Simulated scan of single mutants.
Amino acid sequence: MSTPLETEPGAATAAPESVLVGEKRIEGRSLGQIAWARLRRDKVALGGGFLVIFLVIVAIFAPLIVGVLGHPPNEFHQELVDPDLQVPTARFGGVSSDFLFGVEPINGRDLFSRVLYGSQISLLIAFLATLLSVAIGTTMGVIAGFVGGAVDGLISRLMDIFLAFPLIVFALALVGVIPDTAFGLRGDALRIAVIVFIIGFFNWPYIGRIVRGQTLSLREREFVDAARSMGARTPYILVKELLPNLVAPILVYATLLIPSNILFEAALSYLGVGVQPPRATWGGMLADAARWYQVDPWFMLPPGLAIFVTVLAFNLFGDGLRDALDPRSR
């Protein structure tokens, strides 16, 4: 019988996270590093990600950008509007070095400034509503998937009810009758809070179903059994064992939920129950442009392209992020 090999005193042993090949040590990579390497190879998704970052920066610093390149969003420039036709006198909606996107009909407000200020409203509502949906959906989905039984049945039926609820009708009814002051808020702040609540609270079942399905699979894995065998309680398993493994699908779905929330906010503003004038919103600008498209079609392009580019950027980044975090979904 052969004797086991013995290492000489002082001989180096390779760490489990690295392998020594010749004179070069190859370090192991974390799951985040592997996902980032995949994402870097996807140029389309990477471009969408950089565009998302650019749009967020533009929305945050909109007042500074407007101060340098534009005019106040509610400042009238009626000298640039034909007094008879009520449309900009210059071609292409009055586009010039002073008005990069042209001016509105009737009052001549700067479209560039209004598009930038509108991005603040759209992105703020989309991000907050997505955060609310993710928080509720993740909590309910994890509980339903892990506990199971009657709790799972109750939460699943609750998801079905919310998914069958006519959200747009409820939003029109609720936003249209809110008072001027409530919950310590008033004006635009109150409307933004109500819109965020409606979008976020009634969209949580979509992510809740995804999280529930993933939890049903994860609760049977070995690391969960090991945690139970060591005496871990249910809250510890949910927070320390399951949630870290749910970050990838939650993050991917959140990036895909943001553009749908942007479109929903734009639809509410288009229907006249979103943030009220004179505050600039993309949907409100499209609603105004719809009345002038026959005589001034340019008016529709800036807000329409802003929505298109923003939604496209988030979708491209979300698809690439999904492929990077779960290559089997290709």
Rank of each mutant, 00 (worst) to 15 (best):
A189H: 11
A226N: 01
V224F: 13
G149F: 12
V177T: 04
G149W: 03
L116S: 00
G208R: 06
L172D: 09
A126S: 08
D110H: 06
F170T: 04
V177R: 11
I168H: 07
P205T: 03
G208F: 08
L124M: 14
R186T: 12
M140N: 09
S217K: 13
Y206D: 02
G149S: 07
L123I: 14
R228N: 05
I106D: 03
G213Q: 02
A129K: 10
T138I: 12
F202P: 04
I136R: 09
F112V: 01
S229G: 11
L190H: 06
G141Q: 04
V177D: 06
D180G: 10
A182L: 08
L163T: 00
I121Y: 14
A126W: 08
L158G: 12
A226F: 15
V103Y: 05
G93T: 08
N203P: 00
D110W: 09
D188I: 14
F92V: 07
V194Q: 04
A126D: 02
L172F: 01
F112P: 13
V95N: 10
A189I: 05
L116D: 06
F202K: 03
F92R: 13
F183M: 11
G149T: 03
I161C: 11
G118C: 02
L116E: 09
S113F: 13
L100V: 12
F146D: 02
V194M: 07
V211P: 04
R157Y: 09
Q214R: 09
I192R: 01
D180F: 15
G102W: 15
R228P: 05
A171R: 03
A164L: 07
V177Q: 07
I136G: 01
A173R: 04
L216G: 04
A171P: 06
I125R: 02
P105Y: 14
G200E: 01
I199C: 02
G145M: 01
V224E: 10
L131G: 10
V211I: 09
I178N: 07
D160E: 10
P105G: 01
L163C: 04
F202T: 10
R191P: 00
A189F: 02
F101W: 07
G137Y: 15
L172S: 06
V115D: 01
T215S: 00
D98C: 01
